[in-house]
Design a protein around this nucleic acid. Structure first.
Lengths: 240, 240
DNA sequence: ACGCTTGTTAATATTTGGTTAATCTATTCA
DNA sequence: TGAATAGATTAACCAAATATTAACAAGCGT
């Protein structure tokens, strides 16, 4: 996955402290949205997609717990860290009940916060990678299941695909009727772009063509010097 | 889901404190294994399947961080909480680097610990899809009762399955017609993923195939480099 | 100690996957 | 138009993964 900067929603009523903390996080490559109370925090939360929320507990209008509960209603996944000046037991317990991921007493060490943030975000990331997103494709009369590495034509016996065949066909399918740059497949699938991997890729293109020639409507065209194009007749490149 | 008691590995060198904490957790319906140093902790960890590890940082022979690192090598999922007397920043950072889920300074409030435990275990529970409750499966013309470890075909004499045969077949059945990753079975059933356990698993796959070949409709396919797939013909992988 | 079950390791065969080579065709551009 | 470069296709080859059977070791109840 592309390592876009992680977005953090920071809700803190003390403008000085808020600004300092925001700067610190920005310096550490996070994209930070600062809200100065619970109300504003919730509005901003609804308008964007955050990877993490850091909420001050004591705030006017709407305290951190209430905000956390509202956020949880919208999103049961997003990690929440509470900041509090008090270290009262009741508060800590309340925080965990609302579904906090962590808890930090002020004053706290900024490096510790940073570490917690990284730990939490990394944990989420490792959970998300079990996300197999899209793995089924219709290619003319063919059906590709790239998780099971099967290519099925009509009701015939499925063709077993090797990992490379599978990934290459999947990548072509993802660019159906559009250019699939050679370099893309080489860097993503072969993890190296040189003369030999390029020859290897040609071999795989040939294999795929052999499979696909059962269907008149489907073919892999070469775009000289650029890459390949999986053509499915009577269909046009679709936007996403 | 069956609320089996959650298993906690508690590693604490102070025998008094360890015993008290263990009792407290047992009273709160956890199943606690107490180890009095890092060595013992690791041995016990390898022998069982824990839902959570609570590690004291300062211990003779093998400190908490080292132990945590070893545990992480075996299992990247299990939550780890550190206990420490010191509240040195370096220690906290070190803990997070090793992959801690939380951090608690002694003396701490036992209720807070309990809350953290519950929060962490709940989080894991909602992530994991390892369904522990189901124990009866229809596999083509076979019926598997994984509690009694019986595999029945038609009205023939039931086949007794060994624990490993049973768990492996169950795991395949849970993924019927879908990929059952090799690594999943190895980490869950064999608790270790290396060359030898992998060979061992192959042996068990062969045994299961022998049992299953009575039914034409059922077979275990290999997906090279990925895992296995229990195929039941005239059925399709179901979405959830 | 004996037999039985269970699981691991070994030994060996087989299959699969991927790269490279060899040869041939197509495209580009000077 | 004819090198030079890019792509196509088939086959040879090697390494890694899997299959299968057998030998072996540990644990356990009798």
């Amino acid at each position: 996955m592309e390592e876009a900067n992680k977005k953090i929603l920071l809700v803190e009523d003390d403008p000085n402290f808020g600004a300092v903390l925001k700067d610190y996080l920005v310096i550490n490559d996070f994209e930070v949205t600062l809200a100065k109370n619970g109300m504003e925090g919730f509005e901003k939360f609804k308008k964007d997609n955050f990877d993490l929320c850091i909420l001050d507990v004591m705030m006017p209008y709407k305290d951190g717990y209430t905000l956390a509960r509202e956020i949880r209603e919208k999103n049961k996944e997003v990690p929440i860290i509470f900041l509090t000046a008090k270290s009262m037991k009741e508060d800590v317990l309340k925080g965990y009940k609302v579904g906090a991921d962590d808890y930090l007493n002020k004053p706290f060490d900024s490096e510790v916060l940073l570490m917690k943030i990284k730990a939490i975000i990394q944990r989420k990331a490792s959970e998300t990678k079990t996300d197999n997103s899209k793995f089924e494709f219709q290619i003319g009369k063919f059906h590709l299941n790239s998780k099971l590495r099967f290519l099925t034509f009509d009701n015939e016996e499925p063709i077993k695909l090797s990992p490379k065949e599978n990934e290459l066909l999947k990548m072509l399918a993802l660019h159906e009727n559009d250019l699939m740059p050679r370099e893309l497949a080489l860097t993503k699938i072969w993890r190296d772009d040189n003369y030999f991997t390029s020859r290897s890729m040609d071999v795989y293109i040939a294999k795929l063509r052999k499979y696909l020639k059962q269907d008149e409507e489907v073919e892999i065209l070469n775009i000289h010097g650029e890459g390949f194009r999986l053509v499915v007749k009577n269909k046009v490149a679709e936007e996403k």
